[in-house]
């Protein structure tokens, strides 16, 4: 269970988020949608503790909003960052192993990750920087899963990937959806893909929540209006 209340987030003097609030139930996938600069990545970063933020963030009842990133990671927050952020001097295997640093028990291991993304087995000893964008994205997701998170944050996993590769990554994510109590927050450019891959959604506009709801049967027209900040006609 993730509860966010009255969350404001800042990068230096710049305020990126205003009074964000939502709740997410265990086992659910939440799609975070919004235009460029709406604050999607900022929200993920503030949940990780990478911005300076005020407000309440509770993970499974524990207040994590004041804790440093390392402690939040140890409590089960895990991020696959935008741009993938591979450790370029580490091999694929080492990148994945780094993810397990927090030492949290759970189903995810090197074997399990390579089962999900078989190509990574083949490239295990290559420097991660030599992989294609799609393969790097798989490493980034795998690295985040290796932490056995309670809350998996996926930032723009299909950005810059060929459509067929993006489908492959989304299919892998769909295959693990709902198999455990792990929560996932998915930031995704493609709104219909995001809605299809989630249980609920939150739409941001200029750092504020403008619409949220259940994904199944969601009104794509209303989401479109919220997305672009048009007044309801």
């Amino acid at each position: 269970m993730l509860e966010v209340e009255g969350l404001d987030a800042f990068y230096g003097d710049f305020q990126a988020l205003f009074d964000i609030g939502f709740t997410q139930k265990s086992g659910e996938t939440l799609a975070l949608i919004g235009a460029n600069g709406a604050g999607k990545s900022s929200l993920l970063h503030s949940i990780c503790g990478l911005t300076s933020e005020t407000g309440t963030i509770r993970l499974n009842g524990a207040e994590i909003g004041k804790l440093p990133p390392k402690v939040r990671a140890e409590l089960g927050v895990s991020l696959s960052p935008e741009g993938r952020r591979m450790f370029s001097s580490l091999t694929v295997r080492e990148n994945l192993q780094i993810g397990a640093n927090t030492g949290r028990p759970g189903p995810w291991s090197l074997d399990r990750v390579t089962e999900l993304f078989p190509i990574l087995e083949e490239f295990a000893n290559r420097p991660a920087s030599l992989l294609s964008g799609g393969q790097q994205q798989m490493v980034a997701i795998g690295r985040a899963l290796m932490a056995n998170p309670d809350l998996l944050l996926l930032d723009e996993v299909s950005l810059g990937l060929a459509p067929v590769v993006a489908e492959e990554v989304m299919a892998a994510l769909a295959s693990i959806r709902g198999e455990s109590q792990m929560m996932t927050i998915l930031v995704e450019q493609d709104v219909s893909r995001a809605i299809a891959a989630s249980d609920c959604f939150v739409c941001l506009l200029e750092g504020r929540v403008v619409l949220d709801g259940v994904s199944e049967g969601a009104d794509l027209g209303a989401i479109g209006h919220a997305y672009f900040g048009e007044d309801d006609a």
């Binding site: 990780c48 503790g49 990478l50 440093p68 990133p69 390392k70 990671a73 140890e74 927050v77 895990s78 991020l79 960052p81 952020r85 591979m86 450790f87 370029s88 001097s89 580490l90 780094i98 993810g99 640093n101 927090t102 030492g103 690295r143 932490a147």
Partner: peptide, 12 residues
């Protein structure tokens, strides 16, 4: 050394 900003999320 590669990315000091993100390693906190890996428990470092």
């Amino acid at each position: 050394s590669d990315d000091p900003e993100i390693v906190g999320m890996m428990g470092i």
